[in-house]
Design a protein around this nucleic acid. Sequence first.
DNA 1: AAAGAGATCAACCGCTTGTGT
DNA 2: CACACAAGCGGTTGATCTCTT
Length: 362
Amino acid sequence: MGRSPCCEKEGLKKGPWTPEEDQKLLAYIEQHGHGCWRSLPAKAGLQRCGKSCRLRWTNYLRPDIKRGKFSLQEEQTIIQLHALLGNRWSAIATHLPKRTDNEIKNYWNTHLKKRLAKMGIDPVTHKPRSDALATSAGSTAQHAKAAAHLSHTAQWESARLEAEARLAREAKLRALAASASASASAPLHLPPPAPAPGGLDSPTSTLSFSDSSAATLASVLEAARGGGRSASTALASVLEAAHAAAMQPVQAAFEEAFKEQQQQQPWGDVDGEDAAGFAGTGFTDLLLDGSLSHQDVMRPAAARVDAEAEADAAGSQQQETEEEKNYWDSILNLVNTSAASASLPASAVVPTPEAYSPVREF
DNA sequence: AAAGAGATCAACCGCTTGTGT
DNA sequence: CACACAAGCGGTTGATCTCTT
């Protein structure tokens, strides 16, 4: 896989952009659109590489960018999403309108990470630090264990949701293609996503997937499947419950820290209104009372799925139910296999979106 | 007022992923 | 299938700003 030469070419400028350069880039894109980034600099009269132009545009010049302080709600969303998605900044940025991944990443590294660390929360795992746990009662440790356990479930479900969203889009595209080719009788086939062969490995996840995690997930899936509810509704509630539980130590620490901060000094970058809202509602409440639920966070993707699914749903409800059942069966089988398998190593990793990506199948 | 330390953030680097041939 | 290229992504750097002594 060859690497693009980019700025290695001689004569290309690097470093901070001047207002003149910004103006040139802005004017060119407004008039022509960016098109091919590689050829853009020459056309726009810039001594920059295309990559540099793209970055400048996406991170700074784009008109739909909100700059300045992050609101409390935005902060909470970032923390919540980071707990679920890890350092997947672009994925997090899709849930924060008008914020760039770079901005979120910087904000996390310079503000939120430190703030969590100060509160005794590991910014990587979003759980109380082990040293803090050591000084706590056994029940706290047990709680953290349970939270970690549920966090795995939440991560698993998050991964699946993403895959499901992609599946729905694929299905719709195929349906449209089918109708376009005048084969109206062609049935809409929605294959369930299958796990990657050879295990649930992921290049990024280091979390462990215990037998009990699998068993819990199995029961959760069984309930969702057998309860007669739609898969998405069941998923949403499962995900929210799992995630809320996983976030509980973080929320508790956040509230505790806020109380302390209130006694000592006001939050540096939280204005009065935000602070009042925060104090009044509480982080836990914001996350759990539905005003900032996991569904909210996942809504952009979920809304797309719902809208597209609705468009497709007319006249194919029964088929969908059948497919849904098959789909849940395959998931359940996977989980049961994992749970029952004595050879499953305790440190087997949690599947991530990559592992369930339907893209692998098409 | 000056120097040093720490914080911030735009930009770069290098790797991965997607797509066309 | 293999390759090349473009674009996207996340980690890191370094210039600049702000705070502290």
